[in-house]
Design a protein around this nucleic acid. Structure first.
Lengths: 227, 227
DNA sequence: ACCTGAACACCGTTCAAGT
DNA sequence: ACCTGAACACCGTTCAAGT
């Protein structure tokens, strides 16, 4: 009785939380494309169908993973002004999202917001309202921020080719892109040569938007007046 | 000889363009999730493997579909100022993307920009440069625009529940969200009651950014001075 | 009542056999 | 040389048979 069958070793019994944490860890380690119900079950030493006792289907698994990740974002902090409070929380969200590179894509793919996302957005709206923005302006401001509220934004190009300067024929075909790439490589915002500083680009857009919002707030902007 | 075998009727021979146009039409009609190599082949009255003569694999098919769609965006038009030229083109891109609701998600999923996307971005960068923005500022501005350059942006919530006002317990749990939903329903920017006017939200953020860029241009902003 | 193996209806893609 | 059917290695999920 000191040995149990290896295939049925008595383990911490499965529960939803353990399933979700294993799924997040697996996605972190192997990427979201390699996350399948079968692969996850294998990781948990469980038969695939055992997962369906804790999540209804794969969609619910992905929803749960999103909530797990969004739950890692730091709570709101008091700041000298509304802008720095919002800014700090968004940058915290960004650090979380960078730890889980698959999360942005999964969040995008959800049809509706999950409870943790709703709670986060509600709290963020509260920060805008506390800062003196009208409900009307807050509404449009939330839309304008889009995914940036959660610490990420859609980058259309990952990183310019890091292998030296662009090829001559590419520069000829896309002269303006080549000029931008040359500029980025020149001011060395990032380690060596190629690529741009994603963090700088994120904060550039974030601050431009926050400043724009504050300016509208000061003007007493309303959509009725401008529509 | 007046009849041919129904299963091998002589048709316009397949070529890459015909494959891509059929794929776009199929995605338009049935959604991107229903687009499989096998289903597309069936639509073209062709055996699945025949597609692989014209596209290397499914990734290349999706790349080609993106290029087909981006090719529908209107060329740049001359405007009284750089802002209205850029604005007009982006709103044209938006109309194209609304015709192909699957395209935004597919563009996001590409690892690198396709030729037509590069050409579009190059032309857009040219518009900023012609407007008097420095190469440095143009670079950051392109990043700040993100997917908005192509006429879409990440909406975190599709549309608030259209079935009347939010339930009491939801309003209690997410008071600020409920307030925003009530505001949106109130000012009736969209047809009846619930939901917000996506076009308004898009233009609100677009104009806020364009105004911010113009303001930075006037100030002679450079990243070196502000870093 | 609970658990689970086999099966179903799909995928994208390889490959060898047919013409 | 070209084309293509069958096969491979996967999916998520159903379902009936086992305990």
């Amino acid at each position: 009785m000191t040995r149990q069958k290896a295939t049925h070793t008595h383990r911490t019994p499965l529960n939803k939380d353990r399933v979700l944490r294993a799924a997040v860890a697996l996605a972190d380690a192997t990427g979201i494309d390699a996350l399948s119900m079968r692969r996850l079950a294998q990781e948990l030493d469980v038969v695939p169908m055992a997962l369906y006792k804790h999540v209804a289907n794969k969609e619910e698994l992905l929803d749960g993973m999103v909530d797990t990740v969004v739950g890692e974002i730091a709570p709101p902090t008091a700041g000298p002004d509304w802008q720095s409070a919002v800014r700090g929380r968004i940058l915290s969200a960004r650090r979380v999202l960078l730890r889980h590179p698959w999360a942005a894509r999964v969040i995008e793919s959800r049809t509706g917001p999950t409870p943790a996302v709703l709670a986060y957005l509600d709290s963020m709206a509260g920060s805008f309202r506390d800062g003196g923005l009208s409900a009307d302006l807050t509404h449009h401001v939330m839309h304008a921020m889009g995914s940036r509220l959660l610490g990420f934004s859609q980058e259309l190009f990952d990183a310019p080719d890091p292998s030296g300067p662009p090829s001559p024929e590419l520069a000829a075909r896309y002269p303006h892109i080549a000029e931008l790439a040359a500029t980025a490589a020149h001011d060395g915002g990032s380690p060596v040569g190629g690529g741009c500083d994603d963090q700088f680009e994120f904060e550039f857009a974030l601050d431009l938007l926050l400043d724009g919002f504050e300016s509208l707030r000061c003007q007493g902007w309303t959509s009725a007046r401008n529509a």
